[in-house]
């Protein structure tokens, strides 16, 4: 499953937030490789820098120091348009609070990344194919009966599944999931995890999942733990019965 060259590679990532006289060093030098097709979970306490690292990997933010490479190509210093394009087509992002657009229906939310990709004319030409693709995604996440519902009419689990369908519509290389089950009950959390595992195993989707729920990491290929802005333990391939490092 794992390729020889890492799909995503972070070297010595540092990030410091400065507010007035306070300097908060969130990341103090992170090194991380993610192989293609890998399901990596990142765990750590609150404030350990998990989400910040995920944002840096997903080009939502820029590191103060260090570099990020995608298939050997440096991506952290790309111009804004290319970084936008990476977020739109190469990375799929899902969040703890789903972050669906409240004015749009489930189907429209799922179609949003495709709408961003296409111009009006291109959208008009490809609208049927794109809609079919979105319907397939929604069917896969079990929401084909909720196409025209607004986010406020969906349950938390349904919203997260809609967010996953949205993240997958442009067929990304890497899915970056920030506490995807953090706001869900156990049953819904399991449902979402099953879905992610399925996407990883059957579609070969590379997933980097940030979580603080240690139970969830059972289903992942590998776990890294962040502590005080650093990877506490070097990368570790989890055995079928694994134990997390402290």
């Amino acid at each position: 499953m794992h390729g020889t060259t890492p799909l995503l590679c972070a070297l010595n990532l540092k990030k410091t937030y400065v507010k007035f006289a306070n300097r908060i060093e969130v990341l103090r030098g992170i090194d991380l490789d993610v192989a293609e097709g890998e399901f990596l979970s990142v765990i750590g306490n609150s404030g350990s820098g998990k989400s910040t690292m995920l944002h840096l990997l997903g080009t939502l933010d820029k590191p103060d120091e260090g570099t990020i490479h995608l298939e050997g190509r440096r991506i952290d210093n790309l111009p804004a348009e290319q970084r936008d394009a990476l977020r739109n087509r190469t990375f799929g992002l899902i969040f703890q609070f789903y972050h669906l657009l409240p004015e749009l229906s489930t189907l429209e939310n799922v179609l949003m990344p495709a709408m961003i990709t296409h111009s009006v004319w291109s959208w008009w030409l490809n609208r049927r194919a794109l809609k079919k693709q979105a319907l397939e995604m929604l069917d896969r996440v079990g929401l084909s009966h909720r196409l025209n519902h607004k986010p406020r009419e969906l349950s938390g689990g349904e919203m997260q599944r809609a967010a996953i369908a949205r993240a997958l519509i442009n067929r990304p290389r890497v899915l970056l999931a920030d506490e995807p089950t953090g706001n869900l009950d156990a049953a819904n959390g399991q449902h979402v995890m099953k879905l992610l595992r399925d996407l990883n195993q059957h579609d070969g989707l590379t997933i980097v999942m940030v979580t603080h729920n240690l139970e969830l990491v059972h289903d992942t290929d590998r776990v890294v733990r962040l502590f005080d802005g650093r990877v506490e333990t070097p990368e570790m391939i989890l055995p079928p019965t694994f134990a997390t490092t402290p």
């Binding site: 997903g58 939502l60 804004a80 348009e81 936008d84 394009a85 990476l86 977020r87 739109n88 087509r89 992002l93 969040f95 972050h99 669906l100 657009l101 409240p102 949003m112 990344p113 961003i116 990709t117 949205r166």
Partner: peptide, 16 residues
């Protein structure tokens, strides 16, 4: 504001 963040996370440009 949050919707703007979502759009940017989905790849919308600042110009967009």
């Amino acid at each position: 504001t949050r919707d703007i963040g979502i759009l940017k996370a989905l790849g919308a440009s600042s110009g967009g």
